[in-house]
């Protein structure tokens, strides 16, 4: 069996004796039962599986378990609490940015990482940041409003 790979997920230490090439999303979903990251394309093209790795957005379908070694992974489940959702989640709820909701994990996680780097973005910067997160329901406009609300407080029309 492989040497255990150690890393943190949502603040808890884990070790998995699995091949280091195992895609991280399988470990998160199948072994840890975390449903936040979604499988969309398996090739890092849609963004539905996005997690934070040491605060940086990473696509867990093309991130291997080995890459996660020693890092702190945050999934959607680790962002806020039931009573107090993360400000980005709260903004997405306030702006009604969901239709089917499947892509939203990636949208929210990417936004959290993006706003940490760019706390006061322009709309064009938001659009560019979310360019490679696909939403097929077409909620881009609502998501844009949600990101601006998360960055600046109230929504900007």
């Amino acid at each position: 069996m492989s040497e255990p790979v150690q890393f943190q997920v949502n603040g808890t230490a884990h070790a998995f004796a699995l091949p280091r090439s195992t895609p991280l999303i399988y470990v998160l979903r199948n072994d840890l039962g975390l449903n936040g990251p979604k499988f969309g394309c398996g090739l890092g093209e849609c963004g539905a599986c996005t997690v934070l790795m040491d605060g940086v957005a990473a696509r867990s379908c093309v991130t291997t378990l080995g890459t996660a070694e020693g890092r702190a992974i945050t999934t959607l489940e680790g962002l806020g609490t039931l009573a107090a959702p993360h400000p980005v989640q709260a903004a997405f709820i306030a702006e009604q940015a969901a239709q089917c909701g499947y892509c939203l994990n990636g949208m929210i996680m990417t936004t959290v990482a993006f706003l940490a780097r760019t706390p006061s973005p322009t709309e064009d910067e938001v659009r560019a940041a979310l360019r490679y997160n696909l939403c097929r329901c077409g909620t881009h406009v609502e998501i844009l409003r949600a990101v601006m609300r998360a960055a600046h407080g109230e929504a900007s029309e």
């Binding site: 009604q96 969901a98 939203l104």
Partner: peptide, 16 residues
């Protein structure tokens, strides 16, 4: 009216 569905979807608590 805001959607009832959004809260669970934004928190990763939907069930697909």
């Amino acid at each position: 009216l805001p959607r009832k569905e959004d809260d669970r979807l934004m928190r990763g608590r939907g069930q697909f």
